[in-house]
Design a protein around this nucleic acid. Structure first.
Lengths: 190, 190
DNA sequence: CCTACCGATCGGTAGG
DNA sequence: CCTACCGATCGGTAGG
């Protein structure tokens, strides 16, 4: 985890919220500066460019997804337990970073090369982890689905959209949410 | 269905693709004009504003979702059959309008009032249709889920993300795709 | 459908 | 972290 100065962390946090609400392209550095409480030109003492902020948001969250999954899984888990843990880990990251998840999912295409390619590769790699999980369950005879690519997309779609509707102070805790979601998903393939 | 002149329809089609690829805010009227093959100022002989184009894309697709669902459902369908038909109708619309679906899902927030509120209401209304469907299945004793709001979001998430990965000329026809998806969804709540 | 153009705003820099 | 400012680009209009 990269260490940021307090001010830079604050700028990144506020930018995350603005990029999620208005979109990256429609958020100006002047919008961001006003929300932070300084002049637009002063932002450049803390960040190199607007894109540097976007890049940090996207790659930090990618890190978080990998790390959470890595910590959740044990090599000797049976496939259904592993899938449930992976779902809980993913939901946990999304729920803890709702705005960043929205930016991660939609604004990454405003990255320029080489960040853009690197981002796409990380995403592909993460999807492959899920694919392996599903395959393992199929080989164990406990998962049933006709097409693994569709099944993976189906699962990640359900997990990713959570950022768009989950209310952290609403009816359900993150634990309850991920329990509900993993039940819907796992029943779908069992 | 509103009738557009051939040129206006062409402008809307090209704008749909650009808005989906680059985002609404990052697509300039000059980008659009170049893709159409005229000067930027000439666009304004055909459309009132950039937002008018966005508005048309969003509300046309909303119409398509309502219409497809209305045509698919019969009042005397049992809940599982109705859910399957509703899934097929929704997937059919998304698959037939992949770029427009992306715009519909992500760019609507660039609408200004009163379009913005009207759009939100339509979306809420459509979600309510799905809620009713699920409730009916629960009352019939054939659907099982712990929270109806989560179940609806779960289903629509899986259906909506299709725009992001489905390849019309790939391995699966729309019919095969929606059959796979509806199986994953319906098994999840049965 | 074009040329010519408007005021506003953009990301970013110079220099302190 | 600020004032002052840059060239580029934005959505849109006038007038033909």
């Amino acid at each position: 985890m990269e260490i940021l100065t307090e001010k830079k962390a604050r700028i990144t946090d506020i930018a995350t919220r603005l990029f999620r609400e208005k979109g990256y392209a429609a958020t100006s550095m002047r919008d961001l500066a006003q929300a932070v409480g300084i002049e637009a030109a002063s932002l450049y003492s803390h960040v190199k460019s607007k894109e540097e902020i976007l890049s940090r948001i996207c790659f930090s969250l990618a890190d978080a997804f990998f790390e959470a999954q890595h910590h959740a899984l044990q090599p000797d888990d049976a496939a259904p337990a592993a899938l449930r843990k992976a779902v809980e880990a993913h939901v946990g990251v999304v729920a803890a970073h709702l705005s960043a998840s929205g930016v991660f999912l939609h604004e990454w295409r405003h990255l320029s090369e080489p960040s853009l390619s690197r981002f796409r590769e990380l995403r592909q790699q993460y999807e492959n982890h899920w694919l392996m999980l599903l395959r393992r369950g199929k080989e164990e005879g406990v998962f049933h689905y006709e097409d693994e690519a569709i099944a993976v997309r189906h699962i990640l779609s359900a997990l990713n959209w959570i950022y768009d509707w989950y209310k952290p102070n609403g009816r359900y805790s993150v634990e309850q949410l991920s329990a509900h979601i993993s039940k819907l998903i796992i029943q779908g393939i069992q």
